[in-house]
């Protein structure tokens, strides 16, 4: 969910804003999500010994 959009945006500016926000969102989540996924994967390989 995003904030209330700009009241009077021109169409091209609005497209740029949306693309920038999507790019930032993807980058932000990747920066924290990729290391976290790596940590979970590494831990799960250790957990495998428990059920092996």
């Amino acid at each position: 969910m995003s904030n209330v959009p700009n009241n009077n945006p021109s169409a091209p500016d609005n497209t740029v804003a949306v693309n920038t926000a999507t790019g930032k969102l993807a980058l932000g989540w990747a920066l924290v999500g990729v290391p976290l996924a790596y940590g979970v994967y590494e831990t799960l390989t250790r957990v495998a010994a428990l059920f092996g």
Partner: peptide, 19 residues
């Protein structure tokens, strides 16, 4: 935040510190 700021940008910022 300016108008139109996506609030889902905030959790990664918080996570960056907590991680």
């Amino acid at each position: 935040a300016p108008a139109g700021f996506n609030r889902w940008l905030v959790p990664p910022a918080a996570l960056a510190v907590h991680l």
